[in-house]
């Protein structure tokens, strides 16, 4: 197999409030001999909010980001569910609407770019599963996470709407997703099944609707705790921020102390590979990692 190579769209969060996600992504990519070329030119995807204000601007900016993956002739890999959805939604809309694509390209031409639609866009979780392979990954596990019950938290924007994602997420069933469960098993852990695993963490309404957002976070952590989870794991840095830093607000909202260590999926893989916790950035967690 030739070396796997991707254009990495980091998103804003990995560069700011979840530095551990960037560290662990790079650490496991190196171990797995995957080359990630960081798209330093990329802008914010608008995080599902910019399009509420200015839909066309959101399309232009996301198309521009894709252009830089196309220029390198690479598939774009995202490490944030919301980046994945926003970028993919832009691609789907432009690829099926030549008129809209022409309008966007008219703007991009002003900076010497053209959106063609030649690059695929895939979240790192599915690149690992579909391109690298879980079997190969499990053979690299030196520290199986066998003693831990791990609750997968999928994050909305990787699995819904399935119509947008199905070609890039292995036709994941939005009501019974498997990918993250399979990844936990491949890392030697025990996967926890619970009702909230494919539900919303509330992140996107945290400022506008703090009570709703806190109840959703509380319900998610509570669901994992009540099913004997020792920790949670997520592919989305926004879910991670919510679950890792907002447990006090969440506890107040659901009337019970809820708190669990939460890993990024990259950190879980890294730990199973035997990479040191500090190299995976576990010192950056607010809900302390207490099991190493």
């Amino acid at each position: 197999m030739s070396k796997l190579k991707y254009a990495l769209f980091t998103g804003c969060t990995a560069r700011q409030s979840t530095p551990e996600q960037m560290m662990s992504t790079m650490a496991i990519a190196e171990k797995m001999d995957i080359e990630l070329v960081v798209l330093e030119e990329a802008s914010c995807c608008g995080a599902s909010h910019l399009q509420d204000y200015d839909d066309f601007l959101s399309l232009v900016l996301n198309a521009r980001n894709i252009c830089y993956a196309e220029q390198r002739g690479m598939t774009m890999v995202t490490i944030c569910n919301t980046c994945q959805l926003n970028t993919m939604m832009t691609k789907r809309r432009l690829d099926k609407d030549p008129e809209l694509k022409a309008k966007v390209n008219e703007k991009l031409a002003e900076v010497g770019l053209e959106y063609k639609g030649t690059s695929e866009i895939v979240h790192f979780l599915y690149a690992i599963i579909d391109d690298f392979g879980l079997e190969k990954l499990s053979k690299m596990v030196v520290k199986p996470l066998a003693e831990f019950n791990i609750a997968p938290f999928y994050g909305c924007h990787n699995i819904r709407p399935s119509e947008i994602h199905e070609d890039s997420n292995g036709h994941e069933n939005a009501y019974a997703p498997r990918s993250l469960d399979d990844l936990i098993l491949a890392c030697g852990g025990k996967n926890v099944d619970y009702e909230e695993k494919n539900k919303c963490c509330g992140f996107h309404a945290e400022l506008q609707a703090p009570h709703t957002a806190a109840v959703l976070t509380g319900n998610a952590i509570m669901g994992a705790m009540d099913n004997n989870a020792d920790m949670m794991v997520t592919p989305c840095p926004l879910c991670h921020l919510k679950l890792d830093t907002q447990y006090e607000h969440a506890s107040k909202a659901v009337g019970r102390d809820v708190k669990l260590p939460v890993l990024h999926m990259q950190q879980m893989i890294g730990l199973a590979f035997g990479i040191e916790g500090k190299d995976l950035g576990i010192q950056h967690h607010v809900s302390e990692i207490n099991f190493l």
Partner: peptide, 22 residues
């Protein structure tokens, strides 16, 4: 708070390319 939240993305992207989270 909700409208400022949506509008801020544009301002921040124009200024930094990235979202200024804080």
């Amino acid at each position: 708070i909700a409208t400022r939240h949506a509008v801020y993305f544009k301002d921040s992207i124009a200024k930094h390319g990235q979202l200024n989270e804080a």
